[in-house]
Design a protein around this nucleic acid. Structure first.
Lengths: 208, 208
DNA sequence: AGCTTATCGGAACGAAGAATTCCGTTCTAG
DNA sequence: CTAGAACGGAATTCTTCGTTCCGATAAGCT
């Protein structure tokens, strides 16, 4: 499995993964940072995407697709325990890091028609997943789908250490909020260790 | 109360307020944006602060002082209901927007010795306020002071509409988390209306 | 009234950064 | 053996931003 074409196909993924990592870390990162992270030259990028904006649109579109997939799963599930279905939906969106790929990137590119359409679709699914949870009597009715959207964004703002640690902490705070969203009130142990002082303090020094 | 000196004193405040607004909205904002927002020329800025970095250090220092003041109040209060004291501390920090002025600005300037000292002092007070709440049996013992710090940061990431609306929403989500932090579990109505779709959707279009 | 000087507005300057283009090189497929 | 796809990265061009500089203004003092 070698050859020029295989290498190119591998670069496709490499570049997308690098772009995700770089732009979720900093929506205004230069495009050269993506190339460097992917371990390719700049021209490898421009061969695939006509501009930075096109790349960002692609990332955002992928983020919406992830969202739609996870939400669709929650809406389609008629068997599982309603609360568990809803909680799995929340965890799934947090893991997909959809907020970082969509609304967080907004402002750095001009949204296309397709993006608007997918965004509307995602929104409808979110409302439906929400409605099911409320009607099943497992979700606090005074929180709205828009509240949930903002909660996702808040969780996406958590960034500490590497990717794994960040995901762990997001789940920790999601668990805190899940406890409070749940009806009737329940309380479980928080997952993942709390941050320690060294972990928090490291962030004060400018990098370069 | 006019005169050159009064005007200058008024500008002192104007500039600081503008800098707070501009840099909490965007930690990498150009210094010209501060001058414009304050309605003064650039030289009015450079007369007061030798560099952009010095201004940022001042803002961060002020943020820490606000934090210390609020936390000190919580630590000193021996009379009030322990939970109410702790909840007021949380609300106070959110209102002071300390996170946006401190850790959020970190990386845009070199921290001074004094900042480190104040930061340590703030941290000690936070731990003490936390300890009191846990020992009074009103705060979930599996959340640590570091958890609380990250919660503040998450709340500070909420930004929607004008300053008033943003503060309202932060309190809404603080209430959600407060419900879950509290021991024994309690549940109150959420303050402030949830965001509506138009409010959320407006953020997709790039500004200029 | 006239002079001094603190204060200010904003243009000018220079450095840095970033998106995109361009060119020479490599290596595969046919 | 060669045409050309794919690539690395320097060169180009444009923008942005921090800082400096200069002329204008008017308060306060003599």
């Amino acid at each position: 499995m070698s050859g020029r074409k295989a290498q190119a196909a591998r670069n496709d993924e490499l570049i997308l993964a690098a772009a995700r990592a770089v732009f979720t870390a900093d929506p205004n990162a230069p495009i050269a940072a993506v190339a460097e992270r992917a371990g390719v030259g700049i021209s490898a990028l421009y061969r695939r995407y006509p501009s930075k904006e096109a790349l960002l649109q692609k990332l955002c579109g992928d983020g919406l697709k992830r969202y739609i997939e996870v939400a669709q799963r929650a809406v389609d599930d008629d068997e599982g325990d309603p609360w568990e279905v809803f909680a799995a939906y929340l965890r799934g969106i947090v893991d997909a890091d959809s907020s970082s790929l969509t609304i967080r990137l907004a402002g750095t590119f001009q949204p296309t028609e397709e993006l608007f359409a997918d965004s509307a679709r995602a929104s409808r699914l979110a409302v439906e997943a929400h409605r099911r949870a409320v009607e099943a009597g497992v979700l606090r009715p005074d929180v709205t789908p828009a509240d949930i959207a903002l909660l996702f964004e808040q969780l996406a703002s958590v960034k500490l250490g590497d990717e794994r640690r960040t995901a762990e902490l997001r789940h920790r705070y999601l668990a805190l909020v899940i406890d409070s969203l749940r009806l009737p009130p329940a309380r479980r142990a928080l997952p993942g260790p709390a941050p320690d002082d060294e972990e928090l303090g490291r962030r004060w020094i400018p990098e370069p």
